[in-house]
């Protein structure tokens, strides 16, 4: 059916809004109406969104899911009936840590372990052959779809991430790439100089603990909790200071409050 179907410009706008996550309430109503009344459009819509999901899959956005702890199952009825952001976070933080693991050909089995997954035995990996089951991690890209995840880099840095988050374990023990989400880094003295690459800029630790967020527009925000941090080789932040840098490299006052960064357990 779809090969004969020619979507209108208005319908195309709605499809694009869906794939970009920009669909507003009025557009949703419009799309709702089309879906209810036009089988051809409906089929096209489903095929289009399905393709969108497949393209994400083709480009390494494949989630696997950590199994929840038995003790936290008791929280589920509360979570299902009161899905507030706070409960969502609390449940997600303790329960569901879904990891998307990106497999690149250049990350072969012979590569060195560069990090340890804290509570690693709790995690299931979609490609179990690619990452050892003992919690040791090799270079590669990953994603936390929801909940919190803790990694310890081989240089000693503790990374606490809150999903959804995209990251990459690089081949160096003291460098980490963070593409999206919210994280906290706790850097021991021996790992001073630890560098996070986020949104195209480098955040260099000068002996500290700091929070970092990267949003979908590639805007980066940094908050320092202890010590100091050098941002984009332009400014140095000290304890309790924060800075935002947008995707054009312009500085702005950070929107995120320091207390919203994931705490260390």
């Amino acid at each position: 059916m779809t090969e004969q179907f020619q979507p209108s410009l208005e319908f195309i706008e709605l499809l694009v809004a869906v794939t970009e996550g920009d669909l507003d309430a009025a557009q949703r109503d419009e799309l709702n109406e089309i879906i209810n009344n036009d089988a051809g459009s409906r089929e096209y819509y489903v095929e289009y969104v399905s393709l969108h999901a497949m393209l994400e899959l083709q480009h390494h956005r494949t989630p696997t899911v950590e199994m929840p702890l038995e003790s936290t199952r008791e929280l589920l009825p509360t979570q299902q009936s009161n899905w507030t952001p706070f409960i969502s976070f609390a449940i997600a933080a303790s329960l569901l840590f879904a990891v998307v693991h990106y497999v690149y050909n250049n990350y072969g089995p012979g590569r060195n372990v560069v990090a340890t997954l804290i509570d690693g035995s709790h995690f299931a990996w979609q490609n179990a052959d690619d990452q050892p089951l003992d919690g040791s991690l090799k270079p590669g890209r990953g994603q936390i779809v929801a909940g919190r995840g803790n990694l310890e880099l081989s240089g000693g840095v503790l990374i606490v991430m809150q999903g959804p988050a995209d990251f990459e374990l690089l081949g160096e023990p003291n460098r980490f790439k963070f593409d999206r989400g919210v994280m906290r880094a706790v850097v021991p003295p021996e790992a001073e100089g630890f560098t996070v690459i986020a949104g195209g800029i480098e955040i260099v630790d000068l002996g500290t603990e700091f929070g970092l967020s990267v949003d979908k527009h590639n805007d980066v925000e940094v908050h320092v909790f202890k010590g100091s941090v050098r941002v984009a080789n332009k400014i140095t932040l000290v304890k309790d200071e924060g800075q935002g840098i947008n995707h054009k490299g312009e500085f702005y006052k950070p929107r995120r409050e320091a207390k919203t960064y994931p705490p260390v357990k």
Partner: peptide, 14 residues
């Protein structure tokens, strides 16, 4: 630094 699974954890180990 790796922690042991708490009691009742439903491991994904085979």
């Amino acid at each position: 630094m790796q922690q042991q699974p708490p009691h009742g954890h439903r491991s994904t180990q085979p």
